[in-house]
């Protein structure tokens, strides 16, 4: 009952994941900051190439498809599509390496 071998959830067998269900407001703020940092990099590269009258395919595709941080819905900022999750959404922090990958788009209608 007490002591080192008490029955707590992590000890009572099986695997208990401790990823919180949602992001804290501080995690969300830092996440928005990272999104804006990526937007900044893309804008800088675009402006620098535009001065020479150049562009590249990946840049054009990013600008055409990817919303900027300001354009994104909160739903897309903090959650992502998952076909196995209840109501088809899971927290974006469940994505491996989520602070260093761009995950902005989700299937239409979900």
């Amino acid at each position: 009952m007490f002591g080192a071998f008490r029955f707590t959830n992590p000890l009572s067998g099986g695997l208990l994941w401790k990823i919180p269900w949602r992001l804290s407001k501080f995690q969300k703020a830092r996440h928005r900051k990272r999104l804006r940092a990526v937007d900044d990099v893309v804008a800088t590269v675009d402006a620098a190439l535009a001065k020479n009258g150049e562009t590249i395919a990946t840049l054009e595709r990013w600008k055409a498809e990817m919303p900027t941080e300001a354009e994104m819905l909160p739903k897309d900022k903090y959650t992502m599509f998952d076909r196995k999750a209840k109501r088809y959404r899971k927290g974006i922090h469940r994505l491996p390496k989520w602070t260093r990958v761009s995950q902005r788009l989700n299937p239409p209608g979900y």
């Binding site: 990099v41 893309v42 590269v45 990946t58 260093r100």
Partner: peptide
């Protein structure tokens, strides 16, 4: 130097770097 080659490389690692012109 600002060129399409280096722009493409930056786009590949845009989440990891900070860029100025």
């Amino acid at each position: 130097p600002v060129s399409q080659d280096f722009a493409g490389m930056i786009m590949k690692v845009k989440e990891l770097v900070r860029v100025q012109e």
